[in-house]
Write a protein that binds this DNA or RNA. Structure first.
Ligand SMILES: [Mn+2]
Ligand SMILES: [Mn+2]
Ligand SMILES: [Zn+2]
Ligand SMILES: [Zn+2]
Lengths: 139, 139
DNA sequence: ATTAGAATTTTGACTTTGTCTAACTCCTGC
DNA sequence: GCAGGAGTTAGACAAAGTCAAAATTCTAAT
């Protein structure tokens, strides 16, 4: 599945293919997201990128994540009241959200069907439909 | 539909029916939510409650909203990266979210069906399923 | 090589939303 | 009236994110 085995060079290609100029910082941030794909907060990314020694500022991480979202390279996930998660998986999918731990798990959209949604208000267009299944440990 | 025409006394009853001791502040906060039911942020509630003259503190508003959520009197809505919305409508329903303006519109759950969701991870139990349809103005 | 201009990054102050604790007030039952 | 508990308050604090101005880096032309 996720055996894309990303390198810094393949991330640079990915950036170019999304019309993003691959700078050093952007490559590191992209690599952090795609190397081992998970749902990550901006803070986590900042920590990953600066793990060995600081080379990227907070502002750049926030700017870059926003850029990635605008260019459709990652998806924003609003599910936790405290922080936004960034999802390197841009294919249509939904999520389990474990409320207690904050853990997110993908639900592939294939096989999931939603029926009976009402018409959009006129002049509006759908930007995305997401299902969030909030779960907690229980009997 | 929403012709419940709430008074402070009916809000007090609602509080009691949820096992909440109806204090002055709680009644005002409840009244702000149910008088003209909308999806409201904590800040909005604080402003509404203190519109005439300040009588309720920020801490009480936050405490009380959390209490209402715990007791199942209102629902928390996490859909905007900046703030939590509180929803006086606790019946099962979903939402349109107009990304540009932040406007939320209810989608009654009756008639909406979701098929093909995978099994929950073992030992987990569903706390809620929500569909969010993000919309924007467009052709 | 030098340099102008554009693109990108950085710093650090700032804002917003929400949390926390200790003090204070209010209420209830005696 | 008074004790104790429930509820509220002020204000300091924290976390996440934003912003503007300065500094750096890159590019492409002289
Ligand atoms: Mn927050
Ligand atoms: Mn925020
Ligand atoms: Zn995902
Ligand atoms: Zn609603």
């Amino acid at each position: 599945m996720e055996l894309e085995n990303h390198t810094r060079e393949s991330v640079a290609q990915l950036l170019r293919s999304h019309g993003i100029n691959p700078t050093h910082q952007r490559i590191e941030i992209g690599f952090a997201l795609f190397e081992n794909p998970q749902h990550r907060s901006a803070d986590e990314i900042l920590a990953m990128v600066n793990a060995r020694h600081t080379e990227t500022s907070k502002a750049t991480v926030y700017n870059t994540l926003k850029l990635f979202v605008d260019k459709g390279m990652v998806r924003e996930l609003i599910v936790d009241p405290n922080k936004v998660f960034y999802d390197p998986n841009t294919s249509a999918h939904h999520h389990f959200y474990e409320v207690a731990t904050g853990e997110l798990t993908d639900i592939p959209a294939a096989g999931v069907h939603i029926e009976g949604l009402p018409q959009l208000p006129p002049g509006m267009v759908t930007e995305g439909i997401e299902i969030i299944v909030r779960t907690r440990p229980g009997r």
